[in-house]
């Protein structure tokens, strides 16, 4: 038996909107630790890793580890029917072939339940090694989204370079080139507007903007995003989910042949 009650149901709505276009089908894994997902996009270029820790739920019951295969587009459709202030409960029976999403309005005057069929998904779980990243950039998530969107109107790829001068995002296309440099800025009044650059070694990597733009659909989840870079490693774009966990996107770099 699985029963997860999330008072801030909008978090789950936002998570689904962030990943539904990147990943078609995925297994949600439930254990004592929390509700998690790891899935690759169909071309195996990007990987999504989600963790919602059990402590973040108002009620968390998971009698035994359970893996539930879901079509993320269909799950997103159902969660879209929840109000932004609704409490969302996810329920499933051990060995059952469906999952129920229950939506309760804040004053309990509307209760809805949506039942969705589960599917068997043969997914490959990858081990993600702990890595010491050469450069970690923390910046406003809306700024990161803006840069990715702007650059994708010029070119298809972005070169992200971190030096002691700052972080540079560059692209080139048929019409010309673009470079955007952000410097460290910790002097802002609000911490969510800060840009913090931690650099061990200068690093420069090339990525497909199409994927970066897809990751930025998670912008409503967090005011800040962390971009971790190491040469020869996938970039990690992380959105923290307040007091519950994270949504991380890993993207394989483009490599010179």
């Amino acid at each position: 038996m699985l029963e997860l009650r999330l008072v801030q149901g909008s978090l789950l709505k936002k998570v689904m909107e962030s990943i539904k276009d990147l990943v078609n089908d995925a297994n949600f894994d439930c254990s004592a630790t929390g509700f998690s997902l790891q899935a690759m996009d169909s071309s195996h270029v990007a990987l999504v890793s989600l963790l919602l820790r059990s402590e973040g739920f108002e009620h968390y019951r998971c009698d035994r580890n359970l893996s539930m295969g879901m079509n993320l587009g269909n799950m997103a459709k159902m969660l879209k029917c929840a109000g932004n202030d609704d409490i969302v409960t996810v329920k499933a029976d051990d060995g059952g072939d469906c999952v129920t999403f229950m939506f309760e309005s804040p004053n309990q005057d509307k209760i809805a339940d949506f039942e969705m069929k589960l599917m068997d998904i043969d997914s490959e779980h990858l081990g993600i090694p702990e890595a010491e990243y050469e450069a970690i950039v923390r910046m406003p998530s809306a700024e990161f989204a803006r840069i990715c969107k702007d650059l994708s109107t010029i070119g298809d790829t972005v070169v992200i370079s971190v030096t002691k001068e700052g972080v540079k995002f560059s692209t080139r296309g048929d019409i010309g080139t673009a470079n955007i440099v952000l410097r460290q800025n910790t002097s802002v009044d609000k911490p969510e507007e800060a840009t913090i650059i931690e650099m061990e070694t200068p690093v420069s990597l090339t990525f497909a903007l199409r994927y970066m733009n897809s990751f930025t659909k998670a912008t409503p989840l967090a005011s800040q995003v962390t971009v971790s870079l190491s040469s020869e490693l996938p970039v990690v774009v992380e959105y923290k989910i307040a007091e519950m966990g994270y949504l991380r996107f890993y993207l394989a770099p483009k490599i010179e042949e």
Partner: peptide, 14 residues
């Protein structure tokens, strides 16, 4: 042009 890497060449199957 640089070639797109595959995520599975960086992270091993469990």
């Amino acid at each position: 042009d640089p070639k797109q890497g595959n995520i599975m060449s960086f992270f091993k199957k469990k």
